[in-house]
Amino acid sequence: MTTPTAIRVAGLTKSYGDRLVLAGVDLSVAPGTVVALLGSNGAGKTTTVQILATLLRADSGEAAVAGHDVATDPAGVRASISLTGQFTAVDEVLTGRENLMLVARLRHLQDAGVLADELLDRFGLVEAARRRVATYSGGMRRRLDIAMGLVGDPPVLFLDEPTTGLDPQARLEVWRTVRDLAGAGTTVLLTTQYLDEAEQLADRIAILHQGRIIAEGTLAELRCLMPPATVEYVERQPTLEDVLLAIVGPDTRPQEIGTTR
């Protein structure tokens, strides 16, 4: 069975006290696509994801995930999603394998151990499987975190700033993982503040600014919103390095300084 839209959001608003965080968000995500919610800190990305993942209630507006309304059928939503939040949600005291088995048991799945071993293999964590997570590197933790979100193959995945705080190597690992997921048909909504990340991973990009989606489309469509490229003359201010070089001068041309004086 297919649902026409994996995620449908209309007129979503949310404020904390008198601070308006979401001012009417509209968004539609087709099944099996990767959509990046791009925005600076405080744009409302995490709030949007938390409402969609049933952690927060919206003040008004509608949101449905995999055909389930987040307000009236949160249990249905929870059974169809997984959330990999901004802060890595792994148990430091347990081993990597135990973390995966924990999620499998909580999802009432048979053969938790087999599932855990498959995911460990897929995420290159076999050797670390029986080590406590406290000994893992940042990239390994994030990989385990994402792997925990995949237990039970939920059709819709939320990744909230999946690469924030990771080193470039780990970032590339996460990118590879997300591409694999997209290839397997999972719907992914990821938030990011990095333009290149959105460019690299997303089929469509939605730009969230001051609580509203101000632009949405493929990368090519968004480029069309810009005026055609023009050649501009930009005056270049000298850097401190230029100034220094001009004063002390290279040893081979001492006279030139004299002439500029």
Partner: peptide, 13 residues
Amino acid sequence: MSVGSEAKTPVSG
């Protein structure tokens, strides 16, 4: 995997 398939996990906790 079929695109947009329903969750296989039971809904009730």
